[in-house]
Computed example of a mutant assay.
Amino acid sequence: MEETAAFEALFPCGRTVRDSFDGLRIALCTEGAMRIEVDGIGHELERGQLLCLTPSRRIRVESHTAELRLRMLSFSFDFLAGQPFLLRASVSEAMEQSPCIAPDRQAWRSLSELFDFLRMQLARDGFPSRREVVEALLFVLVAETSHLYADRPLRRRGARCEQIADGFFALLHRNFRQQHSPKFYAAELCITEKYLIRAISRATEHTPGYWIANFRLREANVLLRSTDLSVTEIAELLGFGSPSLFARFFRRMTGSAPLSVRRTGRKGE
């Protein structure tokens, strides 16, 4: 359980930090207030509000009050991949557009109680089922948080590069399993491949190829950890020409073999 000091260590006031953590950070503001920039856009976080940070964001804490108190949890997408519930693309996009939101009183109480119960369970060193209980509580926390974002309207961004990024990610969510070339996405958006690469790199600081590989890797983790599909079936589903090509891709991206990830996931069940 990370608190205010840990947040300040991650994101020192007045410095822009690229958050390299590959997962989700959820923070509750219980006292005080903070002004924070996320990807250059300013947001106000106040008492009784929720902060959600998705991966690869540029974070800059502009200022905060002396009495600022945060309660924060960080957990990786490897954890999410092992759960039957996953963040939907629309929820992730809503979190990116509105990292700070104000839950109603009932939702805030529910989130606060989950944080309290998680703290209590994490302190039970001798409890044999501690891991299972903590994972179940984290699952509920993700579900509660996602529900708060599920119905938030998405605003369309104005800059041309960001409009192209919106279109690219909408296509990617539908096609990443079988379409792995930036050329396909450029053609669908009626632009050149070179322009697509430049626009996505400017909007996200990563190339289209990075995002295509990232989506395939996350899906592979989900399928390995939460289904009984064979490596051959997963390779075919994700558009790899053979299981060996999939295994080489997976090892290059993670440093581990697909079957070792599956065995690790099964041990945690």
Rank of each mutant, 00 (worst) to 15 (best):
L171M: 06
L171W: 02
L171Y: 02
L171A: 06
L171V: 09
L171H: 03
L172I: 05
L172S: 06
H173K: 03
H173Q: 09
R177L: 09
R177N: 13
Q178P: 06
Q179F: 07
Q179D: 03
H180V: 10
H180I: 06
S181C: 10
P182R: 05
P182Y: 07
P182H: 06
K183M: 11
K183A: 15
F184G: 04
F184C: 07
Y185K: 09
Y185A: 05
A186Y: 11
A187F: 01
C190W: 04
C190N: 15
C190L: 15
I191S: 12
T192F: 13
T192W: 13
Y195D: 06
Y195A: 13
R198K: 12
A199C: 15
S201L: 12
R202Q: 11
A203D: 09
A203W: 01
T204S: 10
E205I: 00
T207A: 10
T207D: 09
T207C: 02
P208M: 07
G209C: 14
Y210L: 04
Y210I: 02
Y210R: 12
W211Q: 05
W211G: 02
W211I: 00
W211E: 03
A213K: 12
A213M: 02
A213S: 12
F215T: 00
F215A: 06
R216F: 03
R218M: 10
E219C: 14
E219G: 03
A220W: 00
N221H: 11
N221P: 00
N221M: 13
V222G: 01
L223Q: 15
R225A: 13
R225G: 05
S226C: 14
S226A: 14
T227F: 12
D228P: 00
D228W: 11
L229W: 12
S230V: 00
S230F: 06
S230K: 04
T232V: 02
E233F: 01
E233I: 00
E233Y: 02
E233M: 01
E233D: 07
I234A: 04
I234C: 01
E236F: 00
E236Q: 12
L237I: 01
L237V: 00
L238P: 06
L238R: 03
